[in-house]
Write a protein that binds this DNA or RNA. Sequence first.
DNA 1: ATAGACTAGTTTACAATATAAACTAAATTA
DNA 2: TAATTTAGTTTATATTGTAAACTAGTCTAT
Lengths: 98, 98
Amino acid sequence: MFKELDPLLHSQLRLAIMSLLVSVEEAEFTFIKEKTGATAGNLSAQIDKLKQAEYIEVNKSFKNNYPLTVCKVTKKGLAAFEQYVEHLKSYLTPKNSK
Amino acid sequence: MFKELDPLLHSQLRLAIMSLLVSVEEAEFTFIKEKTGATAGNLSAQIDKLKQAEYIEVNKSFKNNYPLTVCKVTKKGLAAFEQYVEHLKSYLTPKNSK
DNA sequence: ATAGACTAGTTTACAATATAAACTAAATTA
DNA sequence: TAATTTAGTTTATATTGTAAACTAGTCTAT
């Protein structure tokens, strides 16, 4: 009836992060921050969770002398996102049968 | 970019409850429990939250000498559900623009 | 009639999550 | 060189979610 929703993705901010990464393939911390409107602290925490789960890869370097954090979705992350979307449909399309 | 997701609906169990109610218009506690696979305690708690928010109406009576709890979605609840689904789309359909 | 099991829930207590506030560390500007 | 800004991380707290424990009444077999 109702499919399980990956708790890691069923979170507004993490879902937004993944949604962004799925479409752009690579994004900087500040870009994600801007697009999602999240606070830096929250974003940092959620990025870390996605990284722990290996849904994204995080690359830290420097650009113009400033720290630069670049995120990229992994195959595992893409698969999880796609399954999440698929499972979500079981909640959205009413299986009418009064 | 990303629309707000009503936190009350962005919960697996509450979303399942609402999804059920939206399509059947009226359902018993035990029916919802069966369909969602939730524990009675959790279901009771989440139904209460949906009721507090006036997303559903809860009617308590008796059937065959046993307590009977019947839930029904309200106009407000239906509107909230529809908006939730609409907002959710902003996370699911990638706005490609590399 | 009453002990034990069952139905239909509710309450409570705790674990997990989310998030803002506070902080770090270095760079830039005045 | 002091104040401000950039780019984050860590921590502390408030909010949630959930299972376990409980309530209240019913059915059944003895």
